Computed example of a mutant assay.
Amino acid sequence: MHALGPQWMDPQYLLDTYGTAFFFIALAIVFVECGLFFPILPGDTLLFSVGIFIAGGQLHDNLLVALVGLFLAAIAGNVVGYEIGRGVGSPLRNHDGRIVKRAYFDQTEEFFGRYGARALVLGRFVPVVRTYITVVAGIGRMERRHFVTWSAVGAALWVLVVTLAGYFLGNVGFVKDHLELVILGIVVLSVIPMVVEYLRHRRARGMSPEEVREGSADVVEDLGRS
C-alpha cells in the first residue's frame, strides 16, 4: 500500500510500524481531520482499514470499542473546530494560506447553504467539507445544542458505515488480495463530490472552460491525498 502516498498516510505502514499503537494513531488522525484544518488526512481510509484489520485479526481491538472510540474522536474534533470558529471568527475565514484556504471555506459555505444543518451529516462523507463544516458552523454561531446533535448523528453514521464496510468486506477474497486498489478506490470516490462541487461553483461564477479545468486539477491535487 505504500504507493498511495506518504508513509504516515498509509494505514498498512502505520500498523506494521506501530503495532498495537495503530488504533491510538487512528483516533488522533480522525480527531485532527474533523476540526483542526488538516483536510488531507486519510480519515475514510483509516476507518475502512480499522474494520479490515479487526476482521482479519491484525488488530486485536474489540469492534464495538473501536466504533465508540472513533465516534468520540470524531465528535471531539467537531467540537474543537466549532469552538475555534466561534472564537476566532472572520480573521480565520479571511485567511488564505497553504492549509487554511479561503477556497475551502467558500466551498463549505456553499455546501452549508444548500443543505442547512443536514450538511453536518452529509458533509461528513465529503473530504475538506468534513474538516471545515464545523468551523463554518462556529463562525456562523450555530446554536451549540443544535450543532452537537447534528454532528453526533453525522459522526455516528460516518464511523458505522465506513468502518463496518471494512469489517464485513475485509475477508472477501478480492479485497484481501487487492487492498491497495480498494483503498485507492475509496480515495477516488471521496474526492469526486468535491470536484463536482468545485466545477459547479466555478461555472456559476462564469469562469472559462480552461480556468475550470485548471482549477479542478488543483482540487484533485489537494484532495487526492485524503
Rank of each mutant, 00 (worst) to 15 (best):
G154H: 06
V135C: 06
Y198F: 08
G154I: 09
Y132H: 02
G51M: 12
V68I: 15
P6I: 05
V195P: 03
R225S: 07
S226A: 11
W8S: 08
V195L: 12
M207N: 00
R205K: 06
F112D: 06
S226Q: 07
T45N: 15
L47D: 13
A66F: 14
R93M: 09
V79G: 02
T163W: 08
A55F: 10
Y115N: 12
D16C: 14
S190R: 04
L14Y: 11
T134M: 13
D61W: 14
S151A: 11
V80A: 14
E221Q: 08
D44Q: 11
E197Q: 13
F105Y: 08
C34A: 13
Q107A: 10
Y18S: 06
E180M: 04
D10L: 06
N171I: 01
M194H: 12
F112A: 07
E109P: 00
A76I: 06
A152E: 02
A137I: 03
E214H: 05
N94P: 00
L14D: 07
P42G: 05
L181C: 00
W158E: 09
S190N: 03
A117N: 00
Y167N: 00
S216A: 14
A21G: 01
Y13G: 10
P6D: 10
G57W: 13
V220R: 06
R98L: 15
H95A: 07
